[in-house]
Amino acid sequence: MTTEFSLNATAREMSVRALLADTRARLRAHGLAEAMCGTVEIVLAEALNNIVEHAYAGTEAGEIGLHAVLGPGTLTFTLSDQGAPLAARDLPAGCLPDLGTGGEALPEGGFGWFLIRSLTREVRYHRADGANRLSLRFDLPVPDGTGRPTAPL
């Protein structure tokens, strides 16, 4: 069985918080394990922060759309916005920043795309008609036929 839901938020930090809380509550209600909910929230937080900080940088905060599709074995989110296109022609590779020798040399940023890449099965980006669409796909534990995920609640 496939379930879908759509949510919207203004591209502001506090609205992103509310959007993440709403999304997590819905995933939890669908029986997703807490660890998986956490993985999804980490990835969505980074992708949504990128929209707030980059796509709508220097402009009035626009709208963000979130569409989720929960199917057997997969969970896919599509985030859409009408902000600036992604600067790079290709999606960032998302390498782990060099931690160097620690101390003063430690990086304070550059972890966002690394976390997105590490925790998703597939990331796709599409720019069309002045809109960005980022899709983020996760693998889920396969249901056991009872309609409930096999992962512990």
Partner: peptide, 28 residues
């Protein structure tokens, strides 16, 4: 998130050399 992680790293660095910041009670 990665902004918070960066802020924790910055908090450690701004304490200055010779001082130490440990962490405790990390939730999942």
């Amino acid at each position: 998130d990665s902004s918070g992680l960066g802020a924790i790293v910055a908090a450690m660095k701004q304490m200055g050399a010779g001082r130490r910041l440990d962490l405790a009670g990390l939730t999942p």
